[in-house]
Design a protein around this nucleic acid. Structure first.
Lengths: 230, 230
DNA sequence: CCACTAAATGAATGACGTTCATTTAGAATG
DNA sequence: CATTCTAAATGAACGTCATTCATTTAGTGG
């Protein structure tokens, strides 16, 4: 219905760079790879609040609707980002070193990566591995390590899932405000809790989230390690 | 600007019940308690997708904007719901029974409650306890139990946080699709993982999420329990 | 009796994700 | 070289939400 103008006027504000005309450009918007890295940049710059399809399109000098030629939903973009981030998780230890240290390195790096991306956790946690090849590769490396370490086959997946659950929950913990346990005016009514919190606050050297993560991880390592036969 | 009619015509569709007139009714919209239980009902009926401020208002026979007299944001409602749900978590064991069984009961019930409310987890995980009195009460009961069981004061909060992290992550796991680990066409490229998954699938008696949760919880119980002095 | 105030209204706003008809211009085909 | 095919981009709608605001209403307390 709208009168086509052949060369549409650029409606962008003057600060925006020159916008590509319609038609097939040199290499599209760079496809899913380009979208993924652009999304990662945008998230790094503006956080997940500023991460909007419109903002992502602006980053790529493209109209928002153009994104839907390469991706079928915003959730799709999040999945791409998630899978990309997984390649930063350290699984090297599983090929060489002892099981315990391998799990330690893996778990810490896994937590660190996603503590900066907690909005992805609800997505990852229920995502079929088919939709995330790099994540699948990570599972393969970890599974192989568990097998080599002498885990019975039927315990490998449950053990990994248990560790992952702990990791995801702990990633949230990293982002919690420092005063999350400050009971404020209710302190008198909660003596045991309040005194325990005070003791925790006395330790100024280590971050509370790291203390809790270390404690839980070492407990899991000891408990799960006992399942090995070798 | 709009001409006031004194008695405004009810613009609702015929299926809606009689709408209250403006002004101060008998007991408001029931205040925060009423909103909380209405929200819980609505979520139970329509899930978190259907849980919208408009839908919540309709449940209460009220205009959406009226909710903002009692609550300052949708997130506020979620916090109210979260705190209410916490009262369903079982902490009875901490007052009577042995520590291990108390933690078991607590952890399982905690996971079960929030596995049906995973959209609340990002909210809970970073929520200051001041904003959630019932949650604070739960922490008090748990802290007291840990103290009685002989935990050193400075380890109580980290231990609870570690357990909670594991619980939150595991709550997501409960909602994961059954085929989440089906590697599909990539099966050949991931032999270790694929064979481990196959072994898991052979167990038809127990749900995978329960196996993983039990495994991780028992490991944590053993590992953390060793911290007790008594 | 009157001023005060809690509470409800409904219209308006501003994001945001997503859809769709249409256009464009390389690539492929003959 | 002409024609057809098609991936990719456009911009104008939508529809859905949360949230705000000026205004009205009706108990309550002085």
């Amino acid at each position: 219905m709208t009168a086509p103008t052949g060369v549409p006027a650029d409606p962008q504000s003057p600060d925006a760079g020159p916008r590509r005309r319609a038609g097939r450009p040199a290499a599209a918007v760079l496809g899913q790879d380009g979208i993924t890295t652009a999304a990662l940049q945008l998230i790094g710059r503006s956080g997940y609040d500023g991460f909007t399809m419109a903002a992502l399109a602006r980053t790529l000098n493209v109209a928002p609707s153009a994104l839907y030629n390469h991706v079928s939903s915003k959730r799709d973009v999040l999945v791409l980002v998630q899978d990309h981030l997984t390649s930063f998780v350290d699984v090297a230890g599983f090929e060489t070193g002892p099981w315990e240290q391998a799990v330690r390195d893996w778990a810490w790096s896994y937590r660190d990566v996603f503590s900066k991306h907690t909005p992805l956790i609800p997505v990852i946690a229920v995502l079929p591995v088919t939709d995330a090849p790099k994540t699948l590769a990570m599972y393969e490396a970890v599974s192989a390590g568990f097998g080599r370490a002498g885990f019975p086959q039927e315990r490998i997946i449950p053990a990994i899932v248990a560790l992952e659950s702990f990791i995801f929950g702990s990633a949230y913990d990293v982002t919690a405000p420092a005063d999350i346990f400050d009971s404020g005016s209710m302190a008198a009514a909660t003596p045991h809790f309040t005194s325990a919190v005070r003791r925790l606050a006395e330790n100024v050297d280590e971050k509370p989230a790291d203390v809790a993560f270390s404690l839980g991880l070492e407990a899991l390592l000891a408990g799960l390690g006992a399942l090995r036969s070798a």
